[in-house]
Design a binder for these strands. Sequence first.
DNA 1: GAATTCCCTGAGAAAACGCTTAGGGGGTGC
DNA 2: GCACCCCCTAAGCGTTTTCTCAGGGAATTC
Lengths: 249, 249
Amino acid sequence: MTTTSPQGRTELLRPDGSPVRVLVVDDEQSITELLSMALRYEGWQIRSAGDGAGAVQTARDFRPDAIVLDMMLPDMDGLSVLGRLRRELQDVPVLFLTAKDAVEDRIAGLTAGGDDYVTKPFSLEEVVARLRGLIRRSGAADRRSESVLVVGDLTLDEDSHEVSRGGDGIHLTATEFELLRFLMRNPRRVLSKAQILDRVWSYDFGGQANVVELYISYLRRKIDAGREPMIHTRRGAGYLIKPAVPAVT
Amino acid sequence: MTTTSPQGRTELLRPDGSPVRVLVVDDEQSITELLSMALRYEGWQIRSAGDGAGAVQTARDFRPDAIVLDMMLPDMDGLSVLGRLRRELQDVPVLFLTAKDAVEDRIAGLTAGGDDYVTKPFSLEEVVARLRGLIRRSGAADRRSESVLVVGDLTLDEDSHEVSRGGDGIHLTATEFELLRFLMRNPRRVLSKAQILDRVWSYDFGGQANVVELYISYLRRKIDAGREPMIHTRRGAGYLIKPAVPAVT
DNA sequence: GAATTCCCTGAGAAAACGCTTAGGGGGTGC
DNA sequence: GCACCCCCTAAGCGTTTTCTCAGGGAATTC
């Protein structure tokens, strides 16, 4: 089931209308805090644990609809945590957090069961998107909930990563895609550069704030080029996307 | 829930009709007083604290709907205060106050959870607007509360920062926008130049008092130009905005 | 009706802000 | 190992915005 808030954001809900529950497991507290904040903002109910034992225990009575699980835990290795969690909650989808250099094939095996993974350092948009996908596919939320964002004649498919405007396919790089997704999930709403940076770039990004300007300009070149613009600058405030108003000629 | 006072101001209220509660945390007393006054004027219930320990303690039994938190506190740093506050009140939205130069350093993630921040020196209108936005989105107030101000045929959208009169879009600069917002939030009420200066300009503005006149004239040019005027001067008292009375011709 | 006070607005300087280009470095695939 | 693509830094440029200053006009007072 989905519902649309007054701001136009679409929320995932369980079939009985109660909020989706997510368990976050990571030993770094800053990570669990960051994730909890972001996921709560999605309207989900969050619990967190700092180690494997805590995770299993919390999972037992919290009965989450999805789990975010760091593969590197102090007390036991991610696999055995996973095993125990699965004993409690058989079908719950898991989003793994792994270091970039983690062994690929091991992860590949894990995600075969419909799970997914994200490498650290991640961006919040990425985690949220992956999680939404997992929950959607697991059937914990209404299956009809869509994975396609539409603003005007602009279309973005979160599953296939396809983007098109007015029927023409548009190729975007990974970062461009995430930026556009964030804009399109908040149409007609001014998003500050800080907000964009916090959601779209990884949490450890320490660079210049003008990357946002740069990527906005890339996006405009691909999306607005030669058409009525959809991406607008609010000087001193931020950017927003909205359906193009046909030129009155 | 929203209600409209006799003066025509729209107030945010909690779903049960009680006033919204806000906790203000800053070590400079002049700031907490300034903010407390301004926020009480919004019809909200305010408590303040001067350090992190006090903030956590006050939050515990005051149970605020939103928190204004200075990042620079004497006893502990803003983030650990945040952590403790969040342990007490999980979903409470936070508006951070930060120094301007601190923004670039290490404030990544502040807006990640739907929170927001304002840099010092700030204007009261900005703080109030941001807080209203946070409270609105957090669901502590009635979700139907709108983000659009309307006076006569003049319309101002706080989310998209769009302004239009009689259907025609009007482009305003950031300062013009804030001034108009302040006027429109107090329709049919005379606002003195001093009041306007205190609310719309940052508290450390040391310039000439006639900026207000200047910006009123800018606004008139954009909003009243060629139409029945909505912005009126009360000589010796101030300015007010009200729906235009159709010209009797 | 003259003086005074208050308000409005034009011009212009300084600063802030956003956009764009060029290029380096890292990673990936062939 | 080479070529390609992607991400980001850095710097320069043009534009927009903000504000000061000053002159003139309008309302008010005496």
